[in-house]
Every structure is written in C-alpha cells, then in structure tokens.
Amino acid sequence: MNEFQHSETTRNEQPIAIVTGANAGLGFETTKALAAKDFRVIMACRDLEKAKKARKHILNCHGNAKLEIRELDLSSLKSVRSFASEFKSENEKLDLLINNAGVMMPPYHRTEDGFELQLGVNYLGHFLLTGLLKEELTTSKSSRIVTLSSIAHKNAEIDFNDLQSENSYSKFKAYGQSKLACLIFSLELERRLKANSLSHVSSLAAHPGVSSTELMRHLPGWLMLMAKPMEPFISHSAEKGAQPTLKAALDKELAGGCYIGPDGFREMKGEPAEAEIARQAENKETAAKLWAVSEDLTGIKFLS
C-alpha cells in the first residue's frame, strides 16, 4: 500500500472530508484526488456556479465520486457559522478538514466583520471553522486538519499593533502575515490537541510552493510579465501544487505538527517532503497571543 492509498471501505465507513475553496486550483485538485480515494467530499465554496462546474468535471473523471456542494464564504463569520451548523445537523463525524481557500495580494478590502480581507479569509475564517467542527473531528476514530500556509511566511511577522492593516497596507506584508498565522495556528493546534489528550486528532500544515492558480490574479502585471520566462523553472501546476496537501492529509506515517512542501530549490516546486518552518512560526508566546486574539475576534473559544 503506498502512502496515498486508502483501504476499501463500506458506504457506512466512508471517510468524510471538507475542502474549502474546492472549486478551483489547489482545492479542485485536492478534491479530485480525495474523491478518487473513496472520500465523501464536502465542497465548501463561495461561488456555487463554479462549484457545480467543478463537481461535474470530477464526476466525468470519477463517476462514482461522492461530492456535495455547500456554500461557504470565509469572509463572513455568519456564513462560516451557517455552514458548520448545516454540516453538524447532517453528520456526526468529520475525518479530514482541509483549510485550503484563500486570497492573495488583493487591493485593500475589509470583510463584513471588519477584518483585513487576507487575514479574514486565509486565517480567521478557518480558525472559526475548525473550532466549530472540533466535536465532529474528535468523534472520528482518526482525523486530520490540514491548513495551508506559504513560503511567504518566512519573511513575515504578526503585527499585533496593526493586525488589520488599518494604519498602513502592503498587500505583500498582509499576505505573508496571514499565511504565517495559518502555520502558527496549525502548530499550536497540534500542541493543544495533545495537551487535551486528543491524540487521535492531528494538525498538519502544507504549502504548494509556486503554483499557477487563480490566486495569482491580483499580482501586479509587471511582476507577472517578468516572471513569465522563468515560470517553467520556478513553478508547477495546480495538480503538482496539491501534492503536499495530499501527503499531509493521507500519509499515515506523518505525525501531527508536520509541515509539508515541495522539495526543490527554495521549496518552489518539486516532490512533497517536510518543509522548513521559520523561527517566528515556532514562537510559543506569539502562538498563545495569536490564539487569544483570534478567539476574541471570532467569538469562539476552544482548546483554551
């Protein structure tokens, strides 16, 4: 049995996965791969029309795939709560949560809850979602939470004095902060799960390297133009970019607290392997402070 292979299951034993942002890019490729491995996948998407098209495409490849579309807008805490409530009313357990959806370097915008968009969507929405689904994750005999970070976390810091970029906004800085927050959260979540004797639940993180997806749409035109000739050498497809996520989700030899990314030059592309974690992501004082701030902002307390 290889690392991505799943054992045969009966319908009642079929594992359940939630993938946020499942309609495009990394989320689509992750969903397609999980569907092929006998998961029942909840496609948690903001754009339902795109989700329907994605679902149809996957079914054309895997006719027996079990795919369900549910609306989830991570820029709205109300939407996150509604999604979680609907899932909980229909399911007693959750085996795999992939915190994948995100935005990258858009113009300054606030969510309906007043959060800087990248922090709100990439991190705070997923923090709330994970907390709301804790009971279902712990009911599973063995579950995993995989949160997507980025190589951009290496040059980032958490600016607690201007967390929402109200004083000044740099799309690059805010993106890096949001992805650093995701990695800090994943590592701190693992520590808290084990401290609460929930060893059957594991938290891991992954990053895709440099992958050509819709996330790139907000990058400056001059940067895209300059990068185009180098693209074959510094980036890979969304299918390849999803491999670290899938390894983190399915490789039973990996322990909680692992961070998976491409193994090539500067982790931009390559085969999935353990990735470098920047020093600031492992600071436990920062992690505790970020957790407390996140609880206050989202209105949920869990594993405290």
Rank of each mutant, 00 (worst) to 15 (best):
G257F: 09
A35I: 12
G241V: 02
E214G: 15
H6R: 15
S143L: 07
G264Y: 02
E68Y: 08
L297W: 03
P244Q: 07
K88W: 04
I300M: 07
A278W: 08
W222T: 02
A287V: 09
S197F: 04
M104T: 07
A156H: 02
G257M: 07
Q243D: 09
K289A: 11
A255W: 01
T130C: 12
T130I: 06
E136I: 00
K50P: 06
A255E: 11
R81T: 13
P272N: 13
G102M: 01
V80F: 00
A181H: 10
L180D: 09
A288C: 05
G299Q: 12
P272F: 13
S89P: 07
R110I: 13
Y123F: 14
Y169F: 14
E190I: 00
E71H: 14
I42T: 08
E13N: 10
D162M: 05
F127T: 11
P244T: 07
L219D: 05
V103R: 10
N91W: 06
C61F: 09
K301Q: 12
Q177H: 08
A238H: 00
L148W: 00
R81M: 06
G102H: 05
R46K: 13
L132C: 11
S199N: 13
S89I: 06
G270T: 01
P208M: 03
T9K: 14
E190P: 02
L59Y: 08
F39H: 05
S142H: 14
F39C: 12
K53F: 07
S294G: 12
L297P: 06
S294K: 11
L225D: 00
P229K: 05
A24M: 04
I58G: 08
